[in-house]
Design a protein around this nucleic acid. Structure first.
Lengths: 110, 110
DNA sequence: TCCATATTTCATGAAATATGGAATTGATTG
DNA sequence: CAATCAATTCCATATTTCATGAAATATGGA
């Protein structure tokens, strides 16, 4: 991952509507959600949402797929993975015990 | 973690200088770096850096500690942990295989 | 083709953010 | 206490970002 990609991703998530959208899609999982559903769930105008979705898309955080008249969006877990890897690059520098707890905690209680 | 904290953290990392600073501190690990060292390493002015450090500080991504005339900064791994946990909240929803790879990747090859 | 639904694109004004210069606070040394 | 080094705060300017409304595009059904 390039620094530019990471910047795009972080600033994409650093905005209220987009963070909500992304977390919603994380919860939706493999089923994803149509743009209209997202707009309804979050009470955001279509054009505003569309613009924010395109920013998340460009940042590699979501994918989309046309489905008839609708466009269905999905959280892109690979994108998050790359982002975290970039952020924590060389974190260990001889001290694995520093970063390991960070990873353990996230072991999302599924 | 509250949504506001997550927004602050993501938008803190969504800016060139701050992302560089944070990654530098991640690499520095437990030793941390003095503000002046960081400014020198990244070729950023004192006041600009100071401002950016205070934003990272408020976002819970770094900690600091006065050391004589200098102020030493450290990456706050707990902050990152909380941020990721928030982002991936309820990611599993019956499909652990979706999010697990995200976490595995971060198992930084130390 | 005509129409309704779903989404995207574009231009605009308002608000937020980044940067640099100058002044200021805090800590150490002589 | 004066001089100096380290970092922060204050302020003005330039830039970027954001939500909005209007218009455009795309799909599916009658």
């Amino acid at each position: 991952m390039e620094k530019t990609d990471a910047l795009n991703a972080f600033s994409a998530l650093g905005q209220d509507t987009r963070l909500e959208v992304f977390r919603l899609l994380v919860k939706a999982g493999a089923e994803g959600m149509a743009a209209g559903e997202i707009a309804g769930a979050l009470d955001v105008r279509q054009n505003t949402l569309s613009n924010n979705l395109s920013i998340l898309l460009a940042a590699g955080l979501v994918r989309n797929e046309r489905e008839g008249r609708s466009v269905r969006y999905f959280a892109d877990f690979d994108g998050v993975r790359g982002l975290l890897a970039f952020l924590m690059e060389d974190c260990c520098a001889g001290k694995p015990e520093l970063c390991q707890p960070v990873l353990d905690q996230i072991a999302c209680a599924c």
